[in-house]
Design a protein around this nucleic acid. Structure first.
Lengths: 141, 141
DNA sequence: TTTTTAAAAGACTAAATTATCTTTTTTAAA
DNA sequence: TTTAAAAAAGATAATTTAGTCTTTTAAAAA
């Protein structure tokens, strides 16, 4: 469903929400180690997220990546939109060019239910909220 | 979610269920044209399905691909298992190596709930049943 | 001001997926 | 028995995704 880059992107953003703020930043190495992700690949992803203001960064000594309040307020879906684009939740599971409620593929209704449930979580849950849930419920990222 | 190969595989199998039987077979070209799929790529996929007894085929003049009764009775999921493997519905949406009810990722519950709805359709609906639904409800494949 | 640190940017490589092309085998019809 | 039709098999090519490496830029500390 999500690309590898997108998965790393979501996990890295949650990591930043939990472990950083304007005063305390994290470098690529720290994040890559924490997520068991390839460091240079993760760097690319973080740069993309930073360029699109999903996460924040500063260069130089004591620099690194972090989330500010605005970043923390963004819905999780914004990470996905940034990395995988907006079609992830719209494209037909069976690969039909046209597939809608009016012209459904044989799996349309079920797939739609599955995806809209997940989409709801991603649209209406902020990075901060999910990060808090991770801490409170001791979830893995 | 599914690979391109898998999508073509499902659609081709439904096409065969609707248009063929032991007496009336379809060649790759006919199927590829009907699905707007690349012919040589589709041929590969059909060969794989045939080798795994998901669909049937005969060589030579008047040969082609078709579904017999046993093929028609298989659940849709068998096509997916054959082409994409069994992990499609088990792997973590966030890419975690370990992700289960005991050790869930932040999206586990939602992903699990909605995936199992889709999985149910694929496990307990035979090729024949889905093909009949396609015809009755005038669905596109 | 110089040095060091860390992200940004860009070029490059590897692997997987998608797709194509060519040859071989099977089978039925001529 | 030969020919033709069609799948099977195998090699090759293109594209996308994943991942790496090198150089540049920015910023803080020495």
């Amino acid at each position: 469903m999500f690309s590898q880059a997108c998965k790393y992107g979501i996990r890295a953003t949650l990591y930043l929400s939990i472990h950083t703020n304007e005063e305390k930043k994290a470098g690529v190495k720290e994040i890559a180690d924490a997520l068991s992700a390839p460091q240079p690949f993760l760097a690319k992803i973080l740069q993309l997220l930073s360029k699109n203001n999903i996460i924040s960064s500063v260069k130089g000594p004591n620099g690194g990546f972090y989330l500010n309040a605005a970043n923390n307020d963004l819905p999780i879906i914004s990470i996905i939109n940034c990395i995988d684009g907006k079609d992830v939740f719209n494209s037909c599971v069976m690969g039909l060019a046209v597939c809608s409620s009016e012209n459904p593929c044989p799996l349309h209704i079920q797939a739609f239910a599955y995806r809209s449930g997940l989409l709801y979580q991603l649209k209406y849950q902020s990075v901060r909220e999910m990060a808090q849930r991770v801490q409170k419920e001791n979830l893995k990222i």
